[in-house]
Design a protein around this nucleic acid. Sequence first.
DNA 1: TGCCAGGAAAAGA
DNA 2: TCTTTTCCTGGC
Length: 292
Amino acid sequence: MSTYREIEINGEDIIIKEVQNFDLKDIFDCGQAFRWNKTESGSYIGVAFDRVMEVKKRGNDVILYDCSMEEFNKTWREYFDIDRDYSEIIEKLRVDETLKMACEFGNGIRILQQDPFELTISFIISANNQIPRIKKSIERISERWGRKIYYKGNEYFTFPTIDELKEAEVQDLEQCGVGFRAKYIYETIQKVLIDKEILNTIKAFEDDECHKGLVEFKGIGPKVADCIMLFSMGKYSAFPVDVWVKRAMMHFYVAPDVTLPKIRKFGRDKFGNLAGFAQQYLFYYARENNIL
DNA sequence: TGCCAGGAAAAGA
DNA sequence: TCTTTTCCTGGC
């Protein structure tokens, strides 16, 4: 289902009129992206797809600064999932009392569609890690191997391409603060160097096959695979079970001693092809409210 | 199947 | 200041 939205050009900027369920804090604080930061003016600046993007809300309008209609249609429309009607998803999920509460809390969430290679490396780093440190590691990797770009007089760095990372050694990666995950990142780089289309191939698979393909990488377990397929491969039956979702599920649905694979199966069976959305609402609700 | 090591820094006490 | 926890995976 897609809903028509009015898109306007205003000087150098794109204005998407009257967007519902689109809140910048919800989108960038729900743990799916690591390269966006809030500015003093209330906008968010991030690096994605080789450029710096600044986004701001004005009423219910979304402004994308310095962006042509062509670029918007080619890249950001899909990235911000503009054509999806989230009220329809919330309508279906809110029959469940817990989800009703979680959806109301995080009603501005959108699941971004990011670059599979960047997401794969980023979520390998995320394993048993915390967000400030994950962000720092990704910044260091970008500074070291990415391309320097400028926005409003400030320096930014693109996330490196596979070719830019081909010389990276385990030791170099360790210097970026990724710790024991360095060898997993190194092995993933080698694997992608051998077959540069491997992530696109995996992306084209059905959801379960996609998950199987991803967990074959060192450093990618069930949780990280679910994140990669949900945030960069459009696989919405994914149900990443991290510490917060586990807490939320144990709090609201299942017995305290249930294993992670069982929680994952429970979530996927319960929410079907909306599992990924349900997970995001639950995760955000649980973490922001510090539920036990 | 279940347990635990594995960076280092944030968050909590 | 010190201790615990951290969006978990691999290997035993």
